[in-house]
Design a protein around this nucleic acid. Structure first.
Length: 431
RNA sequence: CGGGGAGUAGCGCAGCCUGGUAGCGCACCUGGUUUGGGACCAGGGGGUCGAAGGUUCGAAUCCUUUCUCCCCGACCA
């Protein structure tokens, strides 16, 4: 991608609407544009990150044996009336009437629809366990949307639903997802903290929420420091679930079960939530299967959410400095930026193009900053949009046989001899 | 939904108190000079001041209504 051909409307001053850092940076970096309260357009740069995060979630879901499908955003009220939630959901649900006067709604979640799909096709215990997920836009008419995409009214969420024969099996599914969530967030460079949670309006008996650590996070967390040291190759969910973790208002210093030296206090952002709720919906929506004895029994269900659009903001909250965003490589919109400091200079152009071709051919996501603007603007834009690796191609260094390499994550600059550049970059990119 | 704040050029703001027909910085356009950290000089374009109504000879400015957006709280991925 050539920067000159890519739509990244960066701005110096964020609009006054933006309060928190990720919101400001997303606007300044040209990632999103607010359309109305809690509703955003995703501009090309923001969309790339959104898709990166979505893809990591998808891959981990698939690895955990979940099946991707896609359910509609607009749902008929019928199923919701049947489940009893049409009234319960209140004003948060956006209700619409179609031309025939039928009551419709913009889905805030999908238990009803997915259970309906399930019960249409699955009749035997032999088809269990089953886990279905989709990644779809939701709408919840929040009383007060805020913090940019972190709490929009319209948001992209991965939600999945597990179906099992009994509680024991359902808890296996639950733990599978638990593990998958930890892996998912670790892949994004985040530190997930799992907390036992209230089950809330979705109901049920078992629930965990997943927060990620960020200095600017919304909630204050108290947790066992062991939760920070998870080995992604060897995740023991049972062990993880035994560690202490609590949010601010649940934490009581006197009753805290762990030693003070093991207790860590930090701020977090909720990015995922999982529930086991038994047969609550399967009974109402008649999702029964026959067991081995031919008896009809309601399936045991769980539901699992990850706020994908929220994660874009959450990653920024965890990774930024006063100059801008510092994307972890796994979610970065581009891995490498080649900054041609002096377009129209023969040497700068030749070298920039050479690297650009080279890395593109290696399937590296690379953006070539070939814009005809001042050096300061280029460098600060690249810092702002936070591409992890930058190659700064300038006449001064070129004459001395160097290219400057910048690692945005630690802000280290190194001068690399021309004949070592490709090798060095490939090494960094594969770390 | 309770409390608070803000709408003036794409963005950030001044002007409002004390009414006289709109200004600054950035961005944008043209020409030139620059080129290792948000360049410089010169010229230029762009706003019926959120909307409606009222007071007045005259309203961005005063009054009323209304819409939108933001912040704090209660609630959530």
């Amino acid at each position: 991608m050539r920067y000159s051909n890519f739509f990244i409307p960066t701005v110096k001053n964020a609009p006054n609407d933006a309060e928190i850092i990720s919101h400001k940076l997303m606007i300044r970096a040209g990632m999103i544009k607010q359309s109305s309260a809690g509703i955003y357009s995703w501009l090309p740069l923001g969309l790339r990150v959104l898709k990166k995060i979505e893809q990591i979630v998808r891959e981990e879901q698939d690895k955990a044996g979940a099946n991707e499908l896609l359910m509609p955003t607009i749902q008929s009220a019928d199923l919701w009336i049947k489940s009893g939630r049409y009234n319960d959901y209140g004003k948060e649900m956006l209700r619409i009437t179609d031309r025939g006067g039928r009551e419709m709604l913009y889905g805030p979640t999908n238990e009803e629809l997915v259970t309906d799909i399930f019960q249409s096709y699955v009749k035997s215990y032999k088809d269990l366990p089953l886990n279905l997920y989709h990644i779809q836009w939701k709408f919840r008419d929040e009383v007060r949307p805020r913090f940019g995409v972190m709490r929009g009214r319209e948001f992209l969420m991965k939600d999945n639903y597990s179906f099992d024969l009994n509680e024991e099996e359902a808890k296996k599914s639950y733990n599978k997802m638990f593990k998958s969530y930890i892996k998912t967030f670790l892949r994004m460079g985040l530190t997930p903290i799992s907390l036992r949670a209230e089950t809330g309006p979705i109901g049920g008996s078992l629930s965990h929420e997943f927060q990620i650590l960020a200095k600017t996070g919304e909630s204050k967390l108290y947790y066992d420091k062991e939760l920070e040291n998870v080995d992604p190759e060897n995740i023991d969910t049972k062990e993880l679930q035994t560690y202490y973790a609590a949010v601010d208002d649940q934490h009581d210093e006197k009753k805290c079960p762990i030693k003070k030296e093991n207790l860590k206090i930090s701020k977090g952002i909720e990015v995922g939530h999982i529930f086991y709720f038994g047969t609550k919906y399967s009974e109402k929506l008649e999702a029964y299967v026959q067991d081995a004895k031919g008896k009809n029994i309601p399936v045991h269900m769980g539901s699992y959410g990850i706020g994908i659009s929220r994660l874009v903001g959450a990653v920024i909250e965890a990774y930024h400095d006063d100059k801008g965003i510092k994307w972890p490589l796994s979610v970065a919109p581009f891995s490498l930026s080649i900054i041609n400091l002096m377009p129209d200079d023969h040497d700068c152009d030749t070298k920039s193009e050479e690297y650009y071709e080279f890395f593109m051919n290696k399937n590296i996501e690379v953006i070539l900053d070939d814009r005809n603007c001042s050096i300061g603007k280029k460098l600060s834009d690249n810092d702002l949009i936070g591409i992890p690796f930058q190659l700064i191609v300038g006449k001064r260094d070129l004459n001395e046989g160097f290219i400057e390499f910048k690692n945005r994550l630690n802000d280290q600059n190194t001068k690399i001899p021309l004949d070592k550049v490709k090798e060095h970059l490939l090494l960094e990119l594969n770390k």
